[in-house]
Write a protein that binds this DNA or RNA. Structure first.
Lengths: 214, 214
DNA sequence: AACGTTGTTGGTCACTTGGCCAATGGCCTA
DNA sequence: TAGGCCATTGGCCAAGTGACCAACAACGTT
């Protein structure tokens, strides 16, 4: 009987390995988004799934690996949202900006901030971070190149523009955890402003496109 | 003799309360800069000072308070460095940018990133963060206002320019923990570029001033 | 020189974490 | 359908944390 009278023997269900693994990953990603990467613990994940902690260890022998993969999964899912647009390059870029600045992206911004800090002490997260950044740059560069080709974006340094836009995104994202995020036009439209400046488009062009898509 | 044979009885020295308190704060700030705010523990600080953990508790009954005050102390010290310049507004701003982008500021950038993330779960850090940001804005605004008055900065929105410059600083600072911080001109000069754009000065003006002060 | 104040000490406590293990029982295969 | 593989269980462990405490000793006061 051991030390504890186990309360109720739950019906234990056995799932297909891939399915269970994906389930664990999704749960870990959800915890990361809601509470932060540090809160991904064997018990936290196990509790959400009504499962024993040991089972998580079974699929992820090293807890760190689960954290890294959960971040990658969340970032990948978010990227699919950010770049799921069609239309002209201006419209696609505007849609990207709308979604980046949308309130629903706040959780994701928190997660990025989280990962950026954590990569200080956990090299594996740093690698995953760099990989995700690279993928994001590829997506945005694709839009920018299309705009340069179509003549919408006069810039002569498309990659530099891409880099600048992401710095703007990350800069604004820095304040996502501020309690009293004070409202100021310079904050709210910084990404749009930076994009116009970096791409060399006439001021107001992107603002219009962004407003139209909001 | 109890459970442990104490190795060597160190001569215990008694310092003036203010002195001891400052010493603890400095040590905590040093730990924060080198290893992060999470590593400020009673034992970590105590060990550095060759003192018992209980003593730290004596001066900071709540460990959180020590963390918050250590961050504020580090930020205050850094601000003194960043804005310790004389000359024309352009020169002072250039000096600020040089120091922000200097390699020696990397530790401090890590600390800011650290605090920004931590404020997600620790409101007290968020408050300290907001307070330090406010002080930084005051300092930079003072320079900008002087530049506007002297006619060096044509901008009609000095405060917006200040906000934009700090977003640029924080955006670049986001990557401070990247393992392979890839070198790119758009990265390295982003703050200078943004400042020129936000202040409405002719492109190249600030770059020259920055180069001259490096 | 005796005394009270208080800085300082080592140790304990309750709690959480990641990693580990033997036992159990559901599922697939022969 | 019988057997074996392995997903799953539940509890244990050492390590690390912040908070706390009673006793000790250095200091300033009288």
């Amino acid at each position: 009987m051991g030390a504890t009278m186990s309360t109720v023997t739950v019906t234990r269900t056995r799932k297909r390995p891939e399915e269970r693994r994906a389930e664990i990953l999704d749960t870990a990603a959800a915890i990361a988004l809601e509470q932060g990467l540090e809160r991904i613990t064997l018990r936290a994940v196990a509790d959400r799934l009504n499962v024993a902690p040991g089972l998580i260890s079974h699929y992820f022998p090293v807890a760190d690996d689960l954290v890294v993969e959960a971040f990658a999964a969340a970032a990948t899912a978010e990227r699919a949202q950010l770049f799921a647009a069609s239309g002209t390059p201006v419209q696609r870029l505007a849609q990207f900006i709308v979604r980046v600045e949308d309130a629903r992206s706040r959780d994701m911004a928190r997660l990025w901030l989280n990962a950026r800090h954590l990569s200080r002490i956990r090299p594996a997260i740093g690698e995953a971070l760099a990989a995700q950044e690279e993928l994001d740059r590829l997506q945005l560069s694709e839009i920018i190149d299309a705009g340069v080709a179509s003549g919408d974006f006069p810039t002569r340094e498309p990659f530099a523009a891409c880099v600048r836009i992401f710095i703007a995104v990350d800069g604004v994202g820095s304040y996502v955890n501020d309690t009293a995020s004070f409202e100021h036009a310079a904050y709210e439209h910084f990404v749009t402003d930076t994009a116009e400046w970096a791409l060399g488009v006439a001021p107001g062009t992107l603002h219009e496109a962004v407003s139209a898509r909001q």
